[in-house]
Write a protein that binds this DNA or RNA. Structure first.
Lengths: 222, 222
DNA sequence: GTCTATAGAATGATAGAC
DNA sequence: GTCTATCATTCTATAGAC
């Protein structure tokens, strides 16, 4: 098996223009052709719908109107496709999270910013989030997808430290468990991908505001 | 839209409807043998850990110390095993939910009761809940698992009508969306199965009380 | 109730023609 | 960039011996 780590540690330097002087290996993201990106999107929809393992390379090829063997002109393996889907999503959300943290606003504002970012990914990254949710257990133990766990750890630190800061500044209740509260917020946001329908009654930002309302003040009348 | 109708011909005899005694597969009609239940538990652990599709009948047989063919003395198919896992869980929780609704208490008490029941299943039904979460999309479209969607619909009605009643009685805020709020509560509870560890810092009832606190009153100081 | 043995189908992936 | 053709494996499930 190729050991070409598509996500070798460190931030990815988006070098160069479209000149294409440097062509990456088949299984690597970056400098992606339009055709390639189209195939990745098709695969993402199928992975989201049926699960990674239940989706066959023939399913993907059928959807693209080509034969399964032809897929291997673009990708090294089925795994490299899902890798491209997930790493793209994680790069984007991690970058957005870090930006909010770096603003250094007050805890309530920071938490709201994180929540809005998460809900904001629901539409553009619906398939990736679904795959992350459903196939996490299967993927997380593979060396290739170690970045999933690393990212999860970093995100947890962001949230938990913000919640704790809020408690110290007396804007969040002292009798909530920071780690537990983080997990519940995180899960509630992501799991919305299961029933969220683009173009429905509420858009992602409407969902975010509704959720922030409940999370900050509860459902009781006061 | 793949036709996953792997069932070789033959009448889809759906013996035993709702409310009746459940059908048992081959081998032990009526009485659920201890051996059989042991195998179901082993399979449930594997399904939860690796996903239904990624778990092979050989994996299950290995875990039981027998060969894969021998499993078919107890079960008709791999599907019938996961069916047994999920239907058992759903029968129990639906019955418990209905009991709370039938008590006819005030909305806040009823919601709390439903939340406590859900968290209470986390420990005894950890594997079943994990399978339900991760493999829902794959299973929900099969005729055999139509009861999943039926149960989901019934549960949604219970929660939504209770939340609405709470709004009419002015104990819940009028500016929350009942259906949306139900989904967020439901998802938050079930998804806890991903990180809940029996014997950890908090037991399921501790989780339930923590969540009720946040859900009713929010994380803000007041 | 388990094993031996295997059928029959599907799967991920490859090599080379065009 | 796609197709033809196919390999090696793995999968669910079956039949019959013990």
């Amino acid at each position: 098996m190729t050991t070409t780590s598509t996500n070798s540690g460190g931030p990815k330097a988006r070098t160069g223009g479209e000149g294409g002087a440097r062509r990456r290996g088949k299984g690597s993201p970056g400098l992606a052709s339009e055709r390639r990106e189209h195939l990745v999107r098709l695969a993402a929809e199928l992975f989201a719908e049926k699960g990674f393992q239940a989706t066959t390379v023939r399913n993907i090829a059928d959807e693209a109107g080509i034969l399964s063997g032809s897929l291997y002109h673009h990708f090294d393996s089925k795994e490299s496709i899902v890798d491209e889907i997930l790493s793209g999503f994680f790069e984007e959300i991690m970058s957005a999270y870090r930006a909010v943290i770096d603003e250094g606003k007050e805890p309530r504002e920071t938490i709201a910013g994180l929540v809005r970012i998460a809900f904001g990914t629901l539409e553009p990254h619906r398939a990736a989030i679904t795959v992350m949710q459903n196939d996490w257990n299967y993927l997380k133990d593979m060396e290739r997808f170690a970045y999933l766990t690393r990212a999860e750890d970093e995100v947890e630190k962001m949230w938990v430290s913000t919640i704790k800061a809020g408690q110290e500044q007396d804007v969040f209740r002292p009798d909530i468990d920071p780690k537990l509260t983080y997990r519940m917020i995180r899960d509630t946001v992501w799991v919305a991908v299961r029933w969220f329908k683009p173009g429905g009654r509420l858009n992602p930002q409407g969902l975010a505001e509704h959720y922030l309302k409940v999370m900050f003040d509860g459902i009781n009348t006061h």
